[in-house]
Design a protein around this nucleic acid. Structure first.
Lengths: 345, 345
DNA sequence: AGCCAAGATGACAGCGCTGGTCAAATTTAG
DNA sequence: CTAAATTTGACCAGCGCTGTCATCTTGGCT
């Protein structure tokens, strides 16, 4: 019922070892042999037994995904993308939710890698931004790919997938500017997350490019949470000079701001435009739905996994891997933003 | 560095075979030998190499979790609980998100089980309520545990974890009744989910017990979605005789109802009480926060896994497993409910 | 044609564990 | 104290695959 490597070898008229070579795309297999084997694999629908591979080989066929992110939607999307890519390459995915702030976190990661004999790791914020984690992994000689905020690929680094928060934030801000807004406020996320800083930078850059001053009162520090949005909007609306639009660092904050505004009886978007970031399901469940920036999380995850597999592949020449994909979240316009306040000031 | 079964055997002063016997809890190992081995295992922090076990043994040491639930928070919690339990027993967890409505779903599940050589499966709604899935698994002789809505354990079934939606709904309704409400409406979830039916039944039972009539106009069919809550509340508030309280089948619906009410300028909870169900993070991000019923999803998941392991354990006598835990979600009172409308009608 | 190096392929051992068989050691019962 | 039952160990094969190394081809060159 289940085809083994032996069956494939017989079917293709080659030795087991040759099939193995093909499976691991080792060099020195002639083209026609390769094709023969591939055909046999397809014929028999052969899938290598990962247990046997793990056992026999020093390397492993599972990768790990470590996360600690309160945003469940994000995690689920990531998992989906990783799983797709894993399935394609015959890898297994081990998920490992944990607490990034735990003091023994580095040890925990090390132990996970060694106990589960992982081939590599996928890191998302905040893990992807923790230098001691990266250092520990490098020391252990374990491959990993980090998904981080950034726009400019560095030639010396080949294990990152970049999300261009700067440009996306620039676009959102531009959208608001084009609607005629000039007094735009920004609700920050957690300082520790570089995404917040990048988005703020993009926001400022867009204003500056239009020749507008950045009003420091319009930049409100905060966290990636609903409550933070509620508070932030309250502060902004208490100002003598109110902004006419708010750009929140993510959808949760935006949802908080939205709710806060409604409590203060401020019509959205007639009196105040609000934009978020992430395009989480959240952004469709507010009313009005949020203008936001869409991050294709599954796709990003899949790419990250592909990149990891390039590294872990036995004959990978790591120096040759230059890919460092950059994703730019797309502007999604919904009803929470509209042109300049309709009413007179 | 990594302890093998051999090291444990030496350390305990017994043979490899005996350690193996202990690991697989085979019978005919004397108590003190057992303890000695267990001590050695603890000393060396021995973790069996699952690859080797999988390979050598006909059985397997991974379980699968199949899901298709738009509720990311729920999935994340479930995963957490399952992982905890798996770690404890040296199992691996394979997650498999998929589409329950896909026509080839039974085949897909079968293939997953055979390709990944799963020891068992955990099923949550909607999979746990699909008879053809259960039938297929039984036919394949694969163990599985279902998490379903129900309050009365059946002696003939030993692979279910029950969630007593009926009683929890009864409690929530009672809470509203005790606040003095008599005109209480119910916003249903999807008909296909038995949880919705159970909760409705609990709601009706509570009313009936108080000698109150169930007003059919106050029972609004719908779906487990924010939008459904918005619509449902709108309908209810358009009635000549409005309810003074709404019990929504889950937090998302409740959030929708809440928002709808606010749009209609109805003060919550002064003019209208709203209760949800689930205690998802969602229920804390609305304003006011929702009264709801808390489901300890992680705990439920962990228990389900424990139950599964009892079945898959090599020498398990399945007939002897009677456990069929019942969880009753706990009432959580927050600000969205209060006593009878403060103002005159 | 003849020779050689590089390239392609195969034979074989062994990864860490389980399952089986059987015999030896130990305990328990009578 | 002996027979029977129970517990333990020694030993072997083998799960499906990979790593090593030896062997066989191939093609380039004189």
């Amino acid at each position: 019922m289940k085809a083994t490597i032996n069956d494939v070898a017989k079917h293709a008229g080659v030795s087991i070892k040759t099939v193995s070579r093909v499976m691991n795309n080792e060099p020195s297999v002639r083209k026609d042999t390769f094709d023969k084997v591939m055909a046999a694999i397809a014929d028999l629908q052969y899938q290598p037994n990962s247990a046997a591979r793990n056992l026999a080989s020093t390397r492993s066929y599972s990768i790990g995904y470590i996360y600690d992110n309160p945003n469940a939607y994000y995690i689920i999307d990531m998992q989906k993308g990783l799983l797709d890519s894993c399935k394609k390459h015959g890898y297994e995915l081990l998920i490992h939710p944990t607490n990034a702030k735990s003091p023994g976190i580095v040890e925990e990661v090390k132990e996970l890698v060694s106990k589960s004999r992982l081939a590599g790791l996928i890191l998302t914020p905040p893990f992807s931004e923790m230098p001691h984690i990266a250092a520990a992994l490098e020391e252990m000689n374990v491959d990993f790919v980090r998904i981080i905020s950034g726009s400019t690929p560095s030639p010396s680094i080949n294990n990152c997938v970049l999300i261009d928060d700067f440009t996306a934030a620039f676009k959102i801000t531009n959208h608001l500017l084009e609607l005629g807004h000039t007094d735009i406020a920004f609700l920050c996320g957690d300082e520790e997350h570089s995404s917040s800083g990048e988005r703020l930078a993009g926001f400022k850059a867009a204003l500056t490019k239009r020749g507008l001053q950045v009003n420091p009162k319009f930049i409100v520090p905060g966290h990636y949470s609903f409550e933070s949005g509620v508070e932030g909007a309250k502060k902004l609306m208490a100002l003598a000079k109110r902004p006419t639009a708010i750009f929140a660092c993510n959808d949760e904050i935006a949802a908080g701001a939205l709710f806060s505004a409604r409590l203060m009886n401020i019509q959205i978007p007639e009196e105040l435009s609000i934009a978020g970031f992430e395009n989480s399901p959240f952004s469709r469940q507010t009313w009005p739905p949020l203008t936001t920036a869409h991050q294709p999380n599954s796709t990003i995850a899949a790419q990250a996994a592909e990149l990891l597999f390039k590294h872990t592949r036995p004959n990978a020449n790591k120096a040759q891997i230059h890919a460092q994909p950059v994703f730019i979240p797309e502007l999604v316009v919904r009803e929470s933003t509209s042109s300049q306040p309709h009413q007179k000031k």
